[in-house]
Design a protein around this nucleic acid. Structure first.
Lengths: 205, 205
DNA sequence: TCCAAAACGCTAACCGTTAGTGTTACGGTC
DNA sequence: GACCGTAACACTAACGGTTAGCGTTTTGGA
Protein backbone atom coordinates (compact mmCIF):
# COMPACT_ATOMS: atom_id res chain seq x y z
CA UNK A 1 0.00 0.00 0.00
CA UNK A 2 1.61 3.28 1.00
CA UNK A 3 4.45 1.30 2.51
CA UNK A 4 7.08 0.26 -0.01
CA UNK A 5 8.92 -2.42 1.92
CA UNK A 6 12.08 -0.65 2.93
CA UNK A 7 13.83 0.24 -0.30
CA UNK A 8 14.35 3.74 -1.54
CA UNK A 9 17.26 6.04 -1.08
CA UNK A 10 15.44 8.02 1.56
CA UNK A 11 14.81 5.08 3.85
CA UNK A 12 18.33 3.84 3.42
CA UNK A 13 19.78 7.24 4.22
CA UNK A 14 17.59 7.59 7.24
CA UNK A 15 18.55 4.16 8.53
CA UNK A 16 22.20 4.92 7.89
CA UNK A 17 21.99 8.18 9.83
CA UNK A 18 20.27 6.46 12.70
CA UNK A 19 22.85 3.71 12.77
CA UNK A 20 25.71 6.14 12.58
CA UNK A 21 24.34 8.07 15.53
CA UNK A 22 23.84 4.93 17.59
CA UNK A 23 27.29 3.57 16.77
CA UNK A 24 29.00 6.85 17.51
CA UNK A 25 27.14 7.23 20.78
CA UNK A 26 27.92 3.73 21.97
CA UNK A 27 31.57 4.12 21.05
CA UNK A 28 31.93 7.41 22.90
CA UNK A 29 30.00 6.13 25.90
CA UNK A 30 32.19 3.05 26.21
CA UNK A 31 35.37 5.05 25.67
CA UNK A 32 34.76 7.77 28.19
CA UNK A 33 31.68 6.92 30.23
CA UNK A 34 28.01 7.60 29.72
CA UNK A 35 27.82 10.62 31.98
CA UNK A 36 31.02 12.14 30.67
CA UNK A 37 29.74 12.37 27.10
CA UNK A 38 27.12 15.00 26.31
CA UNK A 39 24.47 14.96 23.64
CA UNK A 40 26.04 17.88 21.84
CA UNK A 41 29.26 15.94 21.62
CA UNK A 42 27.60 12.81 20.24
CA UNK A 43 25.82 14.88 17.64
CA UNK A 44 28.99 16.66 16.61
CA UNK A 45 30.95 13.42 16.34
CA UNK A 46 28.19 11.82 14.27
CA UNK A 47 28.08 14.97 12.18
CA UNK A 48 24.39 15.70 12.72
CA UNK A 49 22.48 18.42 14.50
CA UNK A 50 21.24 17.86 18.03
CA UNK A 51 17.66 18.12 16.83
CA UNK A 52 18.31 15.45 14.24
CA UNK A 53 19.62 13.16 16.92
CA UNK A 54 16.44 13.65 18.92
CA UNK A 55 14.31 12.98 15.87
CA UNK A 56 15.83 9.49 15.72
CA UNK A 57 16.00 8.76 19.45
CA UNK A 58 13.56 9.89 22.07
CA UNK A 59 16.16 10.41 24.76
CA UNK A 60 19.82 10.04 25.56
CA UNK A 61 19.17 6.71 27.23
CA UNK A 62 17.42 5.38 24.14
CA UNK A 63 20.74 5.60 22.34
CA UNK A 64 21.96 2.71 24.44
CA UNK A 65 18.85 0.53 24.22
CA UNK A 66 18.68 0.80 20.50
CA UNK A 67 17.04 -2.53 19.73
CA UNK A 68 14.59 -3.05 22.54
CA UNK A 69 11.66 -3.47 20.17
CA UNK A 70 13.06 -6.82 19.11
CA UNK A 71 12.82 -7.90 22.71
CA UNK A 72 9.15 -7.02 22.88
CA UNK A 73 8.29 -8.68 19.60
CA UNK A 74 10.12 -11.88 20.41
CA UNK A 75 8.26 -12.21 23.68
CA UNK A 76 4.82 -11.74 22.21
CA UNK A 77 5.68 -14.09 19.38
CA UNK A 78 6.76 -16.72 21.88
CA UNK A 79 3.15 -16.60 23.07
CA UNK A 80 1.18 -16.17 19.88
CA UNK A 81 3.45 -18.22 17.63
CA UNK A 82 3.75 -21.39 19.62
CA UNK A 83 2.29 -24.67 18.44
CA UNK A 84 -1.38 -25.38 19.20
CA UNK A 85 -1.87 -26.80 22.70
CA UNK A 86 1.78 -26.15 23.49
CA UNK A 87 2.18 -25.11 27.11
CA UNK A 88 2.86 -21.44 27.73
CA UNK A 89 5.53 -21.40 30.40
CA UNK A 90 8.11 -23.62 28.65
CA UNK A 91 7.72 -21.52 25.51
CA UNK A 92 8.37 -18.36 27.48
CA UNK A 93 11.24 -19.97 29.29
CA UNK A 94 12.88 -20.92 26.04
CA UNK A 95 12.67 -17.34 24.84
CA UNK A 96 13.93 -15.88 28.11
CA UNK A 97 16.85 -18.26 28.05
CA UNK A 98 17.86 -17.00 24.63
CA UNK A 99 17.57 -13.40 25.74
CA UNK A 100 19.61 -13.95 28.86
CA UNK A 101 22.30 -15.71 26.88
CA UNK A 102 22.33 -12.78 24.51
CA UNK A 103 22.78 -10.31 27.38
CA UNK A 104 25.43 -12.29 29.18
CA UNK A 105 27.50 -12.95 26.08
CA UNK A 106 31.10 -11.89 26.31
CA UNK A 107 30.82 -8.86 24.05
CA UNK A 108 27.86 -7.41 25.91
CA UNK A 109 29.60 -7.22 29.27
CA UNK A 110 30.98 -3.66 29.00
CA UNK A 111 27.60 -2.35 27.93
CA UNK A 112 25.82 -3.85 30.90
CA UNK A 113 28.52 -2.62 33.24
CA UNK A 114 27.93 0.85 31.89
CA UNK A 115 24.20 0.48 32.43
CA UNK A 116 24.65 -0.73 35.98
CA UNK A 117 26.80 2.26 36.78
CA UNK A 118 24.43 4.89 35.49
CA UNK A 119 21.25 5.57 37.48
CA UNK A 120 19.60 7.09 34.44
CA UNK A 121 20.22 3.99 32.35
CA UNK A 122 19.04 1.71 35.12
CA UNK A 123 15.80 3.62 35.44
CA UNK A 124 15.30 3.45 31.72
CA UNK A 125 15.91 -0.27 31.71
CA UNK A 126 13.46 -0.78 34.52
CA UNK A 127 10.64 1.12 32.91
CA UNK A 128 11.37 -0.69 29.66
CA UNK A 129 10.92 -4.00 31.43
CA UNK A 130 7.61 -2.86 32.85
CA UNK A 131 6.45 -1.95 29.39
CA UNK A 132 7.50 -5.37 28.17
CA UNK A 133 5.60 -7.00 31.00
CA UNK A 134 2.46 -5.15 30.02
CA UNK A 135 2.84 -6.11 26.39
CA UNK A 136 3.40 -9.71 27.37
CA UNK A 137 0.38 -9.64 29.66
CA UNK A 138 -1.74 -8.39 26.79
CA UNK A 139 -0.47 -11.19 24.55
CA UNK A 140 -1.25 -13.79 27.19
CA UNK A 141 -4.69 -12.38 27.86
CA UNK A 142 -5.43 -12.36 24.13
CA UNK A 143 -4.67 -16.05 23.68
CA UNK A 144 -7.95 -17.87 23.14
CA UNK A 145 -6.62 -21.10 24.63
CA UNK A 146 -5.47 -19.42 27.79
CA UNK A 147 -8.09 -16.79 28.44
CA UNK A 148 -10.63 -19.49 29.25
CA UNK A 149 -8.90 -20.53 32.42
CA UNK A 150 -6.90 -17.42 33.24
CA UNK A 151 -8.09 -14.19 34.78
CA UNK A 152 -6.66 -10.87 33.56
CA UNK A 153 -4.99 -10.42 36.90
CA UNK A 154 -3.30 -13.79 36.61
CA UNK A 155 -2.12 -12.91 33.09
CA UNK A 156 -0.50 -9.73 34.33
CA UNK A 157 1.03 -11.55 37.26
CA UNK A 158 2.58 -14.28 35.14
CA UNK A 159 3.91 -11.68 32.73
CA UNK A 160 5.61 -9.82 35.57
CA UNK A 161 7.08 -12.98 36.97
CA UNK A 162 8.54 -13.95 33.62
CA UNK A 163 10.12 -10.54 33.13
CA UNK A 164 11.45 -10.77 36.66
CA UNK A 165 13.06 -14.06 35.73
CA UNK A 166 14.91 -12.36 32.91
CA UNK A 167 16.05 -9.48 35.07
CA UNK A 168 17.09 -11.65 37.99
CA UNK A 169 18.90 -14.28 35.95
CA UNK A 170 20.87 -11.65 34.07
CA UNK A 171 22.45 -10.52 37.31
CA UNK A 172 23.22 -13.91 38.78
CA UNK A 173 26.61 -15.55 38.64
CA UNK A 174 25.13 -18.64 37.01
CA UNK A 175 22.22 -17.46 34.86
CA UNK A 176 21.28 -20.92 33.64
CA UNK A 177 20.93 -22.33 37.13
CA UNK A 178 19.02 -19.26 38.25
CA UNK A 179 16.54 -19.61 35.41
CA UNK A 180 16.08 -23.24 36.33
CA UNK A 181 15.24 -22.30 39.88
CA UNK A 182 13.04 -19.32 39.08
CA UNK A 183 11.03 -21.08 36.39
CA UNK A 184 10.32 -23.93 38.78
CA UNK A 185 8.66 -21.30 40.95
CA UNK A 186 6.83 -19.75 38.02
CA UNK A 187 5.49 -23.13 36.94
CA UNK A 188 4.10 -23.61 40.42
CA UNK A 189 2.52 -20.17 40.36
CA UNK A 190 1.04 -20.95 36.98
CA UNK A 191 -0.48 -24.18 38.25
CA UNK A 192 -1.98 -22.30 41.16
CA UNK A 193 -3.49 -19.70 38.86
CA UNK A 194 -4.95 -22.02 36.27
CA UNK A 195 -6.87 -24.88 37.87
CA UNK A 196 -8.48 -22.97 40.72
CA UNK A 197 -8.94 -19.32 39.91
CA UNK A 198 -12.51 -19.25 41.18
CA UNK A 199 -12.07 -21.56 44.16
CA UNK A 200 -12.62 -18.95 46.88
CA UNK A 201 -15.40 -16.87 45.45
CA UNK A 202 -14.25 -13.32 46.13
CA UNK A 203 -15.32 -12.04 42.75
CA UNK A 204 -16.07 -13.50 39.40
CA UNK A 205 -13.66 -12.54 36.63
CA UNK B 1 27.03 8.59 71.49
CA UNK B 2 27.30 11.39 68.96
CA UNK B 3 23.64 10.95 68.16
CA UNK B 4 21.29 12.71 70.57
CA UNK B 5 17.96 11.04 69.81
CA UNK B 6 16.18 13.67 67.80
CA UNK B 7 15.75 16.63 70.09
CA UNK B 8 17.59 19.90 69.69
CA UNK B 9 16.48 23.06 68.06
CA UNK B 10 18.52 22.31 64.98
CA UNK B 11 16.91 18.99 64.21
CA UNK B 12 13.46 20.40 64.77
CA UNK B 13 14.12 23.35 62.50
CA UNK B 14 15.54 21.11 59.83
CA UNK B 15 12.58 18.77 59.97
CA UNK B 16 10.20 21.72 59.85
CA UNK B 17 11.92 23.14 56.79
CA UNK B 18 11.79 19.76 55.09
CA UNK B 19 8.13 19.35 55.86
CA UNK B 20 7.28 22.83 54.71
CA UNK B 21 9.01 22.19 51.39
CA UNK B 22 7.24 18.87 50.90
CA UNK B 23 3.83 20.28 51.81
CA UNK B 24 4.25 23.30 49.58
CA UNK B 25 5.41 21.15 46.68
CA UNK B 26 2.55 18.68 46.97
CA UNK B 27 0.02 21.49 47.21
CA UNK B 28 1.35 23.26 44.13
CA UNK B 29 1.65 20.01 42.18
CA UNK B 30 -1.94 19.05 42.91
CA UNK B 31 -3.22 22.54 42.18
CA UNK B 32 -1.57 23.06 38.85
CA UNK B 33 0.06 19.80 37.73
CA UNK B 34 3.46 18.31 38.35
CA UNK B 35 5.02 19.40 35.09
CA UNK B 36 3.57 22.89 35.24
CA UNK B 37 5.28 23.73 38.53
CA UNK B 38 9.01 24.36 38.48
CA UNK B 39 11.54 23.82 41.19
CA UNK B 40 12.29 27.53 41.43
CA UNK B 41 8.63 28.15 42.06
CA UNK B 42 8.37 25.54 44.80
CA UNK B 43 11.43 26.97 46.48
CA UNK B 44 10.10 30.52 46.30
CA UNK B 45 6.69 29.51 47.66
CA UNK B 46 8.31 27.58 50.52
CA UNK B 47 10.58 30.56 51.10
CA UNK B 48 13.86 28.68 50.75
CA UNK B 49 16.67 28.75 48.21
CA UNK B 50 16.75 26.20 45.43
CA UNK B 51 19.96 24.75 46.80
CA UNK B 52 18.33 24.31 50.18
CA UNK B 53 15.50 22.40 48.59
CA UNK B 54 17.99 20.07 46.95
CA UNK B 55 19.82 19.57 50.22
CA UNK B 56 16.61 18.09 51.63
CA UNK B 57 15.42 16.17 48.57
CA UNK B 58 17.59 14.47 46.02
CA UNK B 59 15.35 15.28 43.07
CA UNK B 60 12.07 16.86 42.08
CA UNK B 61 10.41 13.47 42.05
CA UNK B 62 11.53 12.75 45.59
CA UNK B 63 9.30 15.61 46.73
CA UNK B 64 6.29 13.48 45.87
CA UNK B 65 7.52 10.21 47.39
CA UNK B 66 8.42 11.83 50.63
CA UNK B 67 7.84 8.90 52.94
CA UNK B 68 9.08 5.94 50.99
CA UNK B 69 11.53 4.97 53.69
CA UNK B 70 8.60 3.96 55.88
CA UNK B 71 7.60 1.56 53.15
CA UNK B 72 10.99 -0.05 53.15
CA UNK B 73 11.22 -0.31 56.93
CA UNK B 74 7.76 -1.79 57.29
CA UNK B 75 8.57 -4.49 54.77
CA UNK B 76 11.81 -5.55 56.40
CA UNK B 77 10.16 -5.48 59.78
CA UNK B 78 7.40 -7.73 58.52
CA UNK B 79 10.18 -10.26 57.93
CA UNK B 80 12.47 -9.74 60.88
CA UNK B 81 9.81 -8.86 63.43
CA UNK B 82 7.40 -11.75 62.99
CA UNK B 83 6.82 -14.37 65.65
CA UNK B 84 9.22 -17.33 65.80
CA UNK B 85 8.26 -20.07 63.36
CA UNK B 86 5.62 -17.83 61.83
CA UNK B 87 5.37 -18.40 58.08
CA UNK B 88 6.87 -15.73 55.87
CA UNK B 89 4.37 -15.30 53.09
CA UNK B 90 1.29 -14.57 55.22
CA UNK B 91 3.29 -12.02 57.18
CA UNK B 92 4.30 -10.27 53.98
CA UNK B 93 0.80 -10.50 52.63
CA UNK B 94 -0.57 -8.81 55.70
CA UNK B 95 1.86 -5.95 55.28
CA UNK B 96 1.23 -5.59 51.56
CA UNK B 97 -2.49 -5.51 52.20
CA UNK B 98 -2.06 -2.62 54.58
CA UNK B 99 0.12 -0.74 52.10
CA UNK B 100 -2.30 -1.27 49.25
CA UNK B 101 -5.18 -0.07 51.40
CA UNK B 102 -3.14 2.99 52.26
CA UNK B 103 -2.47 3.74 48.60
CA UNK B 104 -6.03 3.17 47.43
CA UNK B 105 -7.61 5.20 50.21
CA UNK B 106 -9.89 7.98 49.08
CA UNK B 107 -7.54 10.83 49.92
CA UNK B 108 -4.61 9.33 48.03
CA UNK B 109 -6.39 9.11 44.68
CA UNK B 110 -5.35 12.50 43.27
CA UNK B 111 -1.74 11.86 44.13
CA UNK B 112 -1.67 8.55 42.32
CA UNK B 113 -3.47 10.03 39.37
CA UNK B 114 -0.75 12.65 39.20
CA UNK B 115 1.93 9.96 39.35
CA UNK B 116 0.30 7.93 36.61
CA UNK B 117 0.21 10.96 34.35
CA UNK B 118 3.86 11.90 34.71
CA UNK B 119 6.46 9.65 33.07
CA UNK B 120 9.16 10.98 35.37
CA UNK B 121 7.17 10.09 38.47
CA UNK B 122 6.33 6.67 37.12
CA UNK B 123 9.97 5.92 36.45
CA UNK B 124 10.88 7.06 39.91
CA UNK B 125 8.20 4.86 41.43
CA UNK B 126 9.44 1.89 39.47
CA UNK B 127 13.03 2.20 40.50
CA UNK B 128 11.92 2.76 44.07
CA UNK B 129 10.09 -0.55 43.96
CA UNK B 130 13.16 -2.30 42.67
CA UNK B 131 15.15 -0.88 45.56
CA UNK B 132 12.49 -2.12 47.95
CA UNK B 133 12.63 -5.55 46.39
CA UNK B 134 16.37 -5.69 46.93
CA UNK B 135 16.05 -4.59 50.53
CA UNK B 136 13.35 -7.16 51.11
CA UNK B 137 15.46 -9.85 49.48
CA UNK B 138 18.31 -9.02 51.82
CA UNK B 139 16.00 -9.24 54.82
CA UNK B 140 14.70 -12.63 53.70
CA UNK B 141 18.18 -13.95 53.00
CA UNK B 142 19.33 -12.76 56.41
CA UNK B 143 16.64 -14.68 58.29
CA UNK B 144 18.29 -17.64 60.03
CA UNK B 145 15.12 -19.72 59.90
CA UNK B 146 14.70 -19.25 56.18
CA UNK B 147 18.22 -19.22 54.87
CA UNK B 148 18.57 -22.91 55.66
CA UNK B 149 16.10 -23.98 53.03
CA UNK B 150 16.18 -21.00 50.67
CA UNK B 151 18.79 -20.11 48.10
CA UNK B 152 19.78 -16.47 47.56
CA UNK B 153 18.21 -16.61 44.14
CA UNK B 154 14.94 -17.82 45.59
CA UNK B 155 15.03 -15.02 48.18
CA UNK B 156 15.42 -12.42 45.49
CA UNK B 157 12.69 -14.03 43.43
CA UNK B 158 10.19 -14.11 46.25
CA UNK B 159 10.99 -10.51 47.10
CA UNK B 160 10.30 -9.44 43.53
CA UNK B 161 7.07 -11.35 43.39
CA UNK B 162 5.84 -9.75 46.59
CA UNK B 163 6.65 -6.26 45.36
CA UNK B 164 4.91 -7.13 42.10
CA UNK B 165 1.85 -8.07 44.10
CA UNK B 166 1.78 -4.62 45.63
CA UNK B 167 2.24 -2.89 42.32
CA UNK B 168 -0.30 -5.01 40.47
CA UNK B 169 -2.97 -4.91 43.14
CA UNK B 170 -2.75 -1.15 43.43
CA UNK B 171 -3.83 -0.81 39.82
CA UNK B 172 -6.64 -3.33 39.83
CA UNK B 173 -10.27 -2.41 40.15
CA UNK B 174 -10.67 -4.71 43.14
CA UNK B 175 -7.32 -4.70 44.98
CA UNK B 176 -8.43 -7.13 47.68
CA UNK B 177 -9.47 -9.79 45.22
CA UNK B 178 -6.32 -9.27 43.19
CA UNK B 179 -4.14 -9.73 46.25
CA UNK B 180 -6.01 -12.91 47.02
CA UNK B 181 -5.31 -14.27 43.57
CA UNK B 182 -1.70 -13.14 43.35
CA UNK B 183 -0.74 -14.41 46.77
CA UNK B 184 -2.16 -17.79 45.96
CA UNK B 185 0.36 -17.89 43.17
CA UNK B 186 3.17 -16.63 45.40
CA UNK B 187 2.41 -19.29 48.00
CA UNK B 188 2.73 -21.92 45.30
CA UNK B 189 6.02 -20.43 44.11
CA UNK B 190 7.23 -20.41 47.68
CA UNK B 191 6.38 -24.06 48.15
CA UNK B 192 8.24 -24.87 44.96
CA UNK B 193 11.30 -22.98 46.13
CA UNK B 194 11.50 -24.30 49.64
CA UNK B 195 11.21 -28.10 49.73
CA UNK B 196 13.28 -28.90 46.66
CA UNK B 197 15.89 -26.25 46.00
CA UNK B 198 18.66 -28.79 45.46
CA UNK B 199 16.65 -31.45 43.70
CA UNK B 200 18.32 -31.00 40.29
CA UNK B 201 21.93 -30.60 41.19
CA UNK B 202 23.04 -27.75 38.95
CA UNK B 203 24.93 -26.07 41.73
CA UNK B 204 25.20 -27.13 45.31
CA UNK B 205 24.77 -24.71 48.11
C1' DT C 1 33.28 31.91 75.30
C1' DC C 2 34.60 30.01 71.30
C1' DC C 3 34.85 26.41 67.51
C1' DA C 4 33.48 23.24 64.05
C1' DA C 5 29.79 21.62 61.75
C1' DA C 6 25.70 22.08 59.57
C1' DA C 7 22.00 24.63 57.46
C1' DC C 8 21.04 28.10 54.41
C1' DG C 9 21.69 31.41 50.65
C1' DC C 10 23.24 33.43 46.05
C1' DT C 11 25.24 33.32 41.43
C1' DA C 12 26.23 31.07 37.51
C1' DA C 13 26.54 27.55 34.98
C1' DC C 14 25.90 22.61 32.74
C1' DC C 15 23.06 19.37 30.43
C1' DG C 16 19.03 17.16 28.37
C1' DT C 17 15.31 18.46 25.73
C1' DT C 18 12.11 21.14 22.81
C1' DA C 19 9.86 24.92 20.13
C1' DG C 20 10.15 27.61 16.16
C1' DT C 21 11.68 28.26 11.64
C1' DG C 22 13.88 27.31 7.53
C1' DT C 23 16.21 24.51 3.90
C1' DT C 24 17.18 20.60 1.26
C1' DA C 25 16.50 16.04 -0.88
C1' DC C 26 13.64 12.57 -2.22
C1' DG C 27 9.45 9.68 -4.04
C1' DG C 28 5.36 9.49 -6.52
C1' DT C 29 2.46 11.60 -10.11
C1' DC C 30 1.16 13.87 -14.24
C1' DG D 1 11.11 15.16 -17.39
C1' DA D 2 8.89 18.83 -14.53
C1' DC D 3 6.31 19.31 -10.25
C1' DC D 4 4.67 19.04 -5.59
C1' DG D 5 4.10 17.31 -1.00
C1' DT D 6 6.59 15.44 2.60
C1' DA D 7 10.06 13.97 5.48
C1' DA D 8 14.83 14.52 6.94
C1' DC D 9 17.89 17.74 8.49
C1' DA D 10 19.81 22.10 10.40
C1' DC D 11 20.22 26.34 13.28
C1' DT D 12 19.10 29.35 17.11
C1' DA D 13 17.41 30.06 21.40
C1' DA D 14 15.41 28.89 25.14
C1' DC D 15 13.38 26.17 29.33
C1' DG D 16 13.75 23.36 33.51
C1' DG D 17 16.31 20.22 36.62
C1' DT D 18 20.57 19.99 38.87
C1' DT D 19 25.13 21.17 40.78
C1' DA D 20 29.58 23.58 41.84
C1' DG D 21 31.60 27.21 44.22
C1' DC D 22 31.61 30.24 47.74
C1' DG D 23 29.98 33.01 51.49
C1' DT D 24 26.77 33.70 55.75
C1' DT D 25 24.26 32.40 59.74
C1' DT D 26 22.83 29.32 63.28
C1' DT D 27 23.63 25.95 66.78
C1' DG D 28 25.34 22.21 69.76
C1' DG D 29 29.13 21.03 72.41
C1' DA D 30 33.94 21.84 74.46
Amino acid sequence: MTVPPATGRRERKKAATRQKIADTALRLFLERGYDAVGIREVAAEADVAVTTLFSHFASKEALVFEQDEDFEQRLTQAVTGRAPHAPLIPALRHEIEALVRHCTAAGAAPIWRMIDESPALRKYDESMRLRHAETLAAAIAADPELSLSLSPTASRTIARFVIDAYSLAREEADPEAALDEIFRMIEAAWDAAGPAPRASGTSGR
